Simulated assay, not measured.
Amino acid sequence: MVPVSVVIITKNEADVIQRSVAMARLITDDIVIIDNGSSDDTGKIATEYGCRVFQKNWDGYGANKNKGIACARYNWILSIDADEIIDEELVTALHHLHYNNPDTVYNIRFKTYFGDKLISFGSWGRDHHVRLFHRGTVKWSELPVHETLLFPKGTKQKTLAGFIHHYSVKNEKECREKALHYALLSAKKYYHIGKKSNFIKLYLSPAFNFLRNYCLYLGFLDGWEGWCIAKNTARHTWLKYHHLYQLESMPIQKTYQSDNLLYMYPQIKQTS
């Protein structure tokens, strides 16, 4: 075992969490699950695999990941999602690290799947993220969506051998639903920080994103799945600026509490 705590945020992940925590057990005796009121067997499965499960209210992706970090036994944190599985090469790399420099963070490459198909091209085929870090120097931003890690000046970044395998969506329906979900969250975030919608963002940005994913990044080589990913990436871009335009145009009707900030926004008429 290595001095790393694995932190996972979940809600109703019973169909995928078993494989994730089984591989995580190969590196650590401390797997922290921050559960947001699952109604399936997520908590039961995680507990059977020796995880420590904490029920926490949902305050956003970054905020709940920080809650998990606070519950961890070790200072080094490997942050993954329930639908992400570390592979044996990454397990070996983690066992060979010295964990003696809190000013270094570790980038990990991803292999992302559409159903059971590995996506080799497009933006999904180029995916990588910093997921291993020391909690004394690094934490998650507490934004409603697209949370990022906050690094102090002078942080060094290294890339580990191995991959995290991300089982992103099961089918086209889930791909569409995710595009809409994250578009709504992004629109609310943009509205709060004062970002504006305009013609270029509404119409040219979606077209550019499609061409970049499908043509420039060779997404067409992934076949039908590559087409679906490029299409829904463009759709996500259009939706977030469309809903941002709605927010800008309507009177404030509703409030919600997220990430310790009070967000004021109009009631959006959802476009799918």
Rank of each mutant, 00 (worst) to 15 (best):
residue 61 Y to I: 13
residue 156 K to D: 10
residue 49 Y to G: 04
residue 69 I to Y: 12
residue 45 I to G: 00
residue 111 K to I: 09
residue 106 Y to S: 03
residue 98 H to E: 14
residue 68 G to L: 09
residue 115 G to C: 02
residue 75 N to I: 09
residue 75 N to A: 12
residue 66 N to D: 01
residue 105 V to Q: 01
residue 72 A to D: 03
residue 45 I to H: 00
residue 62 G to S: 02
residue 126 R to I: 09
residue 107 N to R: 15
residue 113 Y to L: 05
residue 104 T to Q: 13
residue 64 N to D: 13
residue 68 G to T: 04
residue 150 L to T: 04
residue 80 I to C: 01
residue 131 R to L: 11
residue 79 S to W: 05
residue 94 L to G: 03
residue 145 V to I: 14
residue 50 G to P: 11
residue 105 V to C: 12
residue 102 P to K: 07
residue 93 A to N: 03
residue 86 I to F: 07
residue 125 G to S: 11
residue 110 F to E: 01
residue 63 A to Q: 05
residue 92 T to N: 08
residue 90 L to R: 00
residue 125 G to M: 02
residue 156 K to Y: 03
residue 146 H to Y: 13
residue 85 I to S: 00
residue 98 H to M: 11
residue 102 P to Q: 05
residue 117 K to Q: 11
residue 113 Y to K: 07
residue 151 F to W: 11
residue 145 V to G: 02
residue 44 K to I: 15
residue 96 H to E: 15
residue 147 E to Y: 10
residue 112 T to F: 07
residue 59 D to V: 11
residue 110 F to W: 14
residue 136 G to K: 10
residue 73 R to F: 12
residue 59 D to Q: 13
residue 78 L to P: 08
residue 40 D to K: 05
residue 50 G to E: 10
residue 54 F to G: 04
residue 80 I to T: 14
residue 98 H to Y: 11
residue 78 L to H: 06
residue 42 T to S: 03
residue 117 K to P: 00
residue 115 G to H: 03
residue 102 P to I: 12
residue 80 I to E: 01
residue 114 F to D: 02
